[in-house]
Amino acid sequence: MSGGAVAATAVEQRDIRSHPSGGGATESKGVGTSKWTPYLLLTPGFLWLALFFIVPTMMLLMFSLYTGSLDQGYSFEFPGNWSTYSAVWDYRAQFFRSFLFAGLSTLFCLALAYPLAYFIAFKSGKWKATLLVLVIAPFFTSFLIRTLAWKTILADDGPVVTFMNWAHITNLLALLHLTETDRVLNTPLAVVLGLTYNFLPFMVLPLYASLDRMDPRLVEAAQDLYSSPWTALRKVTWPLSLPGVVAGTLLTFIPAAGDYINAELLGTTKVSMIGNVIQDQFFVVTDYPTASALSFVLMLTILVLVFFYVRRAGTEELV
């Protein structure tokens, strides 16, 4: 059979070509260029990080240990003014509230964004680009104005709250201490809604990116293998979108935990977050060391939370 030999070589050739990682060419290419090139390319990034992250963080840490006041001037006296850190305990309620509100709004964002991102990625057809633009369209207006608009939306005599009162939703939520019995504005729910609204695009976009990358045929394969659409979502789509979920929740939770605008505009001092306290300490009380200490602890806490969260989600395990 003459065809046999010819066919064998043809198949072998294709096999070699189809190996995605068979990068003999790329490996040999590296020999010519200096092994320092990657580091050189990373230098601007490192400088940026050093200049705008590490140095300010160190300054923050230093400042939190200073004594003095704005009028008398600040100075560092060994071993540092550690008493500033007692403020952390004083404001534990605000810390707790910050993480609670940020956590709640992250959950709300996820619940809203997942179906939306799923729809845009798989079902929107030719409307995909338009919908993506609409997701980021709010950014064309100022953050402040959009947040102020929620004051109108949640106004006591507005249609939303009127309906919620009529349907006794406010009563129900009041039991959970999320609202008062007849109003939403200036309650925790208002702040959480504001945060959810403001950070929603940060959740939608990474979710969309990871869902869009997914091969929809995997869902077909799952259904072929006895998965209902719901099981396919749980066992295939959701695990494959985890990198997007992790990115989205981080992008939402971290800024939400440090936010003070929403609590300022939509809440009262009774529901203020740690961001409001820090802002007050810096600009009203001008107690820079305490403000620095609070900022530093906030940053550290978020860092620790993120570390454990990412460890748990095990992103390196995922594709």
């Binding site: 091969d215 995997l218 394969a221 259904q223 072929d224 006895y226 998965s227 209902s228 494959l240 995922l318």
Partner: peptide, 20 residues
Amino acid sequence: AKPYKRPVNTVFQSYALFPH
């Protein structure tokens, strides 16, 4: 009938293996 209710399985042309 829904695909998951059919006594049918497929070897897909593109394999469609679950990467995770």
